[in-house]
């Protein structure tokens, strides 16, 4: 038996007939939920990113050819993968990854403007955040075209990492110009890092200037990107399943029900428990 309404009072949604009243409330629900999801995703993605790879994002002199290129996509792909599960599998919305990365850019810029710049006094040229929106677009596009999480992990996950350096290069290129400072060859980014004192933070050269990290030729970022791409594939798979786990509805009986003044559920007979 199905619901039947007069044409003037009904609307078809995904093959199901609803009253216009229900459809209207449902749309209001969608609107409120969209705002909640944006706030929650901004909070979670930003917290996760700043505490796992934040240092490389805070300071331009940390945006190097190896660690930054390797770590940022690996950490960045965690929530896009989980949200793609929720958005795509539960609601058929093909923009979970892009949504996460736009939320991250929003959260990061709010902090860079009101904290790093307005409070601690650093210039924007030292503190601009990187973007992973290009990689997220690739990830969403692959999921939309294939509808398959494994293909998205392999092709989308690799694309997410491989496009990262190129996607940020227009903003970063000028900081790689060489300078001579006190008889040392440094980049513009390094010099900005020297000039603005961070009492409790090392300039990045002190942090990474070990071994052969900066003595490799110009292919460092390519090697780093491909290594990051490999890890991103694995990370995508892990986080797709974490998204699945946390999007699943589990409930357990409320043991406090009688304490709340409500009727207790009838006790199950031992015979039924033994089945």
């Amino acid at each position: 038996m199905s619901l039947k309404f007069a044409d003037s009072d009904s609307v078809q949604l995904y093959g199901i007939t609803w009253s216009k009243w229900s459809a209207s409330l449902s749309r209001m629900f969608d609107f409120i939920v969209a705002v909640i999801v944006f706030l929650a995703v901004t909070s979670a993605v930003h917290l996760n990113f700043m505490l796992l790879a934040g240092d490389w994002d805070f300071w331009v002199d940390w945006k190097d050819r190896e660690y930054w290129v390797t770590l940022t996509p690996i950490v960045g792909i965690m929530f896009p993968a989980a949200l793609q599960y929720l958005f795509w599998e539960k609601f058929r919305l093909p923009f979970g990854a892009t949504f996460a990365m736009v939320a991250l850019v929003f959260g990061a810029w709010m902090a860079r403007v009101f904290a790093f710049h307005e409070w601690s006094g650093f210039p924007y040229s030292l503190i601009w955040p990187a973007t992973m929106i290009p990689g997220a677009l690739v990830l969403d596009t692959v999921l939309l075209l294939t509808g398959n999480f494994l293909a998205t992990a392999i092709f989308g996950g690799m694309g997410f990492a491989l496009i990262f350096f190129a996607g940020n290069w227009p903003m970063l290129a000028i900081y790689h110009l060489p300078l001579q400072v006190m008889n040392s060859l440094v980049s513009v980014a390094d010099y900005i890092g020297y000039a603005f004192t961070r009492t409790a933070t090392p300039e990045y050269l002190r942090f990474v200037e070990r071994g052969t990290l900066r003595t490799f030729g110009g292919h460092s970022e390519v090697v780093a990107s491909f290594f990051s791409a490999f890890v991103c594939v694995l990370m995508y798979l892990a986080w797709w399943f974490i998204g699945m786990l946390l999007s699943t509805v589990f409930t357990v009986p409320n043991k406090f029900k009688t304490m709340m003044g409500l009727k207790a559920e009838p006790r199950q007979k031992s015979e039924s428990l033994a089945v």
């Binding site: 629900f29 409120i32 939920v33 705002v35 909640i36 706030l39 929650a40 901004t42 909070s43 979670a44 930003h46 917290l47 700043m50 934040g54 805070f58 959260g107 990061a108 709010m110 902090a111 860079r112 009101f114 904290a115 790093f116 409070w119 601690s120 650093f122 961070r198 009492t199 409790a200 933070t201």
Partner: peptide, 29 residues
Amino acid sequence: IGFIFIYAFAVYFAASFFAEQDASWHQTV
């Protein structure tokens, strides 16, 4: 849902806005 909206709004300031601000202060002072 309104309650959860307020929760999410409050969480944003703790987990995003003031959390990254913590880095800007303690890596400077």
